[in-house]
Amino acid sequence: MSRGSLLLKVELRSNPETLCIVRNALGQLAQTFGFSETDCRAVVLAVDEALTNIIRHAYQGKPEQPIEVSFRRIQAARDGVLKPALEIVVEDRGAAVDTTKLCGRPLDDVRSGGLGLHFMRESMDAVEFRRRWHRNQLRMVKLLHGAQPEKGS
């Protein structure tokens, strides 16, 4: 399977101050990719929440820890049709994510916290976690709606 074409790869540290830099760069990338204004904001929100979760939970607030983010143009299937999409992979070397606890929370429960994963799932077309080689890997995909589809094989 083709891994798509790499658009951007970023290595950053687990410092909250870096989040605004990533958001600005990603906003530009998403706009150039062809996303609508609303979808640009959705992609930026999802990545920002992913990084926030890594800083808070995987690294437990410890600064200067490594995070890698890569952005690829891929073709993703939707209803048997291949569509252009943006694939975002975020990797960290922090504590393992307990995937059994990644179920979000009832949104009628009015309280602080626990919204990040919900925002990611609502903003993106696919969100997948896995642990590989002592790293947490989060893969997110956003389809480019309105783009000319290619017939799937």
């Binding site: 929100l45 920002d48 929440e49 926030t52 009015v110 309280r111 602080s112 916290g113 919204l115 990040g116 925002f119």
Partner: peptide
């Protein structure tokens, strides 16, 4: 972001 929403809540 979600931390901002949490502060508002």
């Amino acid at each position: 972001d979600s931390s901002g929403v949490a502060s508002l809540v």
